[in-house]
Design a protein around this nucleic acid. Structure first.
Lengths: 216, 216, 216, 216
DNA sequence: CATGAATGAGCTTTCATTCAT
DNA sequence: AATGAATGAAAGCTCATTCAT
């Protein structure tokens, strides 16, 4: 039942020379992706040069290419890094085994909100730079996003069946819900006045009001 | 009253060697911005070259610079072009004079939804390329977006006062509402299954449910 | 009958932006190919940089790419430039209409020797750099070379039939003959002691001795 | 008499930090040159990277430099490796002691043809990559080639004196002969239709016809 | 001797922008 | 105003070579 989210396709963006100690390479790679993501967030992908990344990581320009195979590769890796945990989280927390629809929805929603809030900059970047991804990789990313929608659709549909939710079109509702998760990353400049806690509570409330009838 | 939306700052991104008939220049400029926007939408700003724009407009490469001062300038002008009408629309339609809060909100929402839906590609582009805008211009754009939020906040606050709406924090609700307007542009690939009409109705319904208590 | 040499395939290596006056572009292109060939001859293709070519032609590095589409393209154009005339020459001179086999062979041989001698450096370069050509282009080049062999094979075969030549295998003889044409380009450092005239006479004599029986 | 071919100049292209057992070093060096030559033949010198050579030899990239001093050095060593045996062969076989000019020429020619045929790929490579050799080394290589010409010139001149050969200019004839030895390496793609034996016989015949009068 | 990460110069190519005509 | 050739500063990436371990 909880296999619905595990679309684990062969995700490594590109193969590398793979010299030796894969572990050390992975560590370096992670370091590069992390620093590069910060730059992508700040300046945009196209405006970030490999020389910028070299400077930011402290890794020599030529040496960078021992760990990643191209600039595009870094972006793909960044998408992986920030996408996979989101999906794994829900699975681990056993959300799918919660019996009460309201409780189930609230739990899933809350966990996703927290995650989204904390990774806000990365999500903002991903919204912007999706266009740059190579087609093959783009497909994987969209699949993962639509998996998340499907996940919420199931929960909502079950709640509707059990008369706990009042929703005309569960698939649409799931789409709207998943989209609303990104409110903060995409609109943060207007929402700075709210504390983290206030914001989370308000968002949860607002989202649920459209799904649960008497939640006024 | 209608001054709340008119933050008409000196909008031409950069000054040009204003020679002859300003009118002819403006017309050419508009033509450039329109064609260039299509390219920015399709290929992304960074991936669009001045040569592309020259070819698309039929205006000689060097001659382009008689009408715009830089590539960046075109993007700034594009933001203006697609931002200002959105704001002017509501003003023109006299939404602010509607007495009944429910009717007022529904009217404003519907009009904005229609606009957003039809300009979806432009909006998507603007989400993506905001990072390229020069800081000064970015500020103007953000101001305009927050003007729209303020506009809806006023409507919602009045509805709350009149006990027509049930909303804990009107400013937050307005932000969410304005954000939800972009559902289609930013998620269109998941929503292709809905007809234009179905989509508009569903979105309106869903947004209003979170604001108007008994709108089930 | 004289169509046997005209394997005029679409030979332009790569398509170019083709801006306007094709004639001026062609002239510049020829200039680039000529200067670049000199460099390829002197230093080898791989050891010649685009900056070298820019400096040698006096054309700005970036501007070069308005006339050629890549470094490889220059090499392809060079092959064309020095290959096509060789083939056209024989056709124009009406060698194929000479009745007497001996006279026909001598005429063709002499004309080819003169050409080869004068373009020696280019031929040397072509021998060396053939490997760099893109496969599609390589095929064309090899086809042209084998056309030349076929041309001489026909002449020799006719001479054998008419008992004018004494040759066991006309195709082999033609290959050897065509190969011998390159003696000077490929061995010039050993042959500097001969005047142009002496060299041509000696070579002609030597080549013919292997084909015409009593030519001692 | 046999000193005419032994131009044994100090042949190691560059001096190395000669540490331990010179013998082991030489063995490794030979291994590197052999494998690298295969790569040079297949891909060309410029297109072969030190990483390729490291992978092909199984010797660590950095470690390679304990046995050779540069990439260029490998090429120089390759030229030596494939040049010296050709020269030594004839000396060893005692060709110079054969009394009958015709037999002497035939023997030398046959042996050289066999060698050239079997080492065709190496010879092709040497033709191509000569341009990369450092001037000092290039001189040595050319000297060795001209030694071979001198060798055949002596044989031919003696035959002419003894009225066994009919040749106007022995030096020119020797040059042509040595050049013809390379027919197969440089034209193999046109000559694939001949068996090894057929090819050798045809070539021998054709070459001799230009030197020995009644060899029809 | 062996390793392979690190170095940095240099490569081809692109492109916004300028300028002579 | 219009043209498009010219400019030159980067860009992404490669690779021979070095060096700390």
């Amino acid at each position: 039942m909880n296999d619905q989210l595990s679309s684990k396709e062969p995700s490594a963006a590109q193969t590398l020379p793979e010299t030796g100690s894969q572990e050390a390479v992975n560590k370096r790679q992670a370091q590069i992706v992390k620093k590069a993501s910060r730059l992508f967030i700040k300046k945009g992908y196209a405006q970030t040069t490999m020389r910028d990344i070299s400077k930011a990581t402290g890794i020599n320009l030529g040496n960078l290419y021992n760990y990643i195979s191209s600039k595009e590769d870094i972006l793909c890796l960044a998408f992986e890094t920030y996408h996979d945990p989101a999906i794994a989280w829900l699975e681990r927390k056993g959300v799918l085994t919660i019996e009460d629809p309201k409780e189930q929805l609230q739990t899933a929603l809350h966990q996703m909100l927290v995650m989204t809030h904390d990774a806000m900059n990365d999500i903002l970047m991903m919204y912007r730079e999706t266009r740059v991804l190579p087609p093959k990789f783009l497909k994987i990313v969209l699949k993962k996003e639509s998996d998340l929608v499907d996940f919420f659709e199931k929960i909502i549909a079950r709640g509707v069946e059990k008369k706990a939710f009042h929703v005309r079109d569960p698939y649409f509702a799931a789409n709207m819900l998943v989209f609303q998760l990104s409110l903060y990353p995409l609109r943060s400049w207007n929402l700075k006045r709210y504390s983290r806690e206030d914001f989370l509570t308000l968002t949860e409330e607002t989202i649920l009001k459209a799904i649960i009838p008497d939640c006024a």
